[in-house]
Design a protein around this nucleic acid. Structure first.
Lengths: 237, 237
DNA sequence: TATGGTTACCTTACGTCGTAAGGCAGTACG
DNA sequence: CGTACTGCCTTACGACGTAAGGTAACCATA
């Protein structure tokens, strides 16, 4: 023992791991630069050599959580590869939920990032890939992504936001470097390309969130009505 | 002319209205006590005579937004009274969405309140009442409330939260003063009473969020599968 | 008309936050 | 043997929420 002098020399990874632990233990509001530094046996300003600032720390937290989710998905996924789309999606969402229950602050954090983290796109790429593999059209996969909403990652405000309130971000990401994302996010890129191409009115952008909202609404109302007429649970087949 | 001396003497209502306008115009992060006071031609500490503090201000904002929603619901609702449950729910959700689009900060605000505002319960009471009137069981109405999730008010983290992470709030509200809420929220109270009574394992509380989550998941997957097999939109009938 | 209390606003100040600016030891390499 | 760089530290600034207490206007009562 001898807790003086940083034997482990402090790094972005160590800082992020400690930040996750601190947020888990005492809530996200306890996660301040000074407090995190103290937890690491260090002064606040030292963190700035490994993190670009508080916002950068939060972005790193978001990526860390998404990484946990991907790891959990892969873990349960390896048991039965080549499952059908339905069990694959179920595994994905249930794994995500498990991780989110471990980190109750994570959904709000993801929803509060001013720009959507790349790891979130990766996550959605997996969803779209699964659906395309399950025989869904790109259009329906797109609608499904909206319909899942908060089931997927526990937050959902973006459904209400018309693509970052100004035709920025989403649309720009899509149109500007669609080619660049094609390799990292093949399914998502293909979906966006297809949807943008099929758009009747291109002035609206490739995604009319009002239409998606109503689609989801009808999907749920239909399902509930059917459940009412049958008696209890879903599982139509 | 003559901007000096408060001709309008400042009040909770004026403060809240100005706060909404400020958040709309410059984002929720611009809403500080000093800034809001300046907007009202007053010093920061003067606000404390009409509001209990920053948290109280945010609670007031939440209630204000919910009030706007209820007003919008009533406005569209008066056109065709005695509609069926489906159009009534559609009107409700679309009205809520309209209001949320006017106040993009509102979903995150609602999701961040440490205790759920009473006006939110009122809103959900209306949903349950409509569903019961539409021939749904209390059980199914309960599941529907979970399934709607972020469709209803644009936020959804509570689905991931096991009743405020400790068996507090929700359950306590339910069991402690269930009788007290019965008059203000008759449908919600009846639903909770019924569900709590039908609970097989009372140690879990009256609501197992994992079960609700999986119900919603299957509801969506069923609906999407049906949409895939048919070709396009929902509307089964 | 004088007086004491209440109301509504203000001033000052404290502790906490994120972080800019710069200091100062070690280590690495010419 | 410098000397430049790295990694951590100290100090300080402005903005935040708000506790404590001051002050001026109003208003009922004597």
């Amino acid at each position: 023992m001898g807790t003086k002098s940083p034997r482990v020399p402090l790094s972005r990874e160590r800082a992020l791991a400690t930040a996750v632990a601190l947020a888990d233990a005492e809530g996200i509001q306890a996660l301040t630069m000074r407090r995190l530094a103290a937890e690491l046996g260090v002064e606040a300003m030292s963190l700035y050599y490994h993190l670009p600032g508080k916002e950068g720390l939060l972005d790193g937290l978001a990526d860390t959580v998404l990484g946990e989710i991907e790891a959990a998905v892969r873990r349960t996924g390896t048991i039965g590869v080549d499952e059908d789309w339905r069990t694959r999606l179920r595994q994905r969402f249930l794994s995500a939920r498990e991780v989110m229950l471990r980190h109750p602050w994570a959904p709000a954090l993801l929803g509060s990032r001013p720009t959507i983290p790349a790891s979130v796109y990766t996550y959605y790429d997996g969803i779209v890939a699964t659906m395309i593999g399950g025989g869904f059209s790109y259009r329906l996969a797109h609608r499904a992504v909206h319909a899942f909403g908060s089931l997927a990652l526990g937050f959902a405000q973006e459904i209400f936001r018309p693509a970052s309130a100004g035709g920025q971000t989403d649309v720009e990401v899509a149109e500007a470097d669609l080619a660049a994302m094609a390799e990292a996010l093949p399914s998502l890129a293909a979906m966006i390309a297809t949807e943008a191409h099929a758009m009747s009115d291109p002035t609206l952008g490739w995604c009319d969130s009002q239409v998606e909202f109503e689609f989801t609404l009808d999907l749920l109302l239909d399902g509930l009505e059917r459940a009412r007429d049958r008696g209890a649970s879903p599982h139509s087949r």
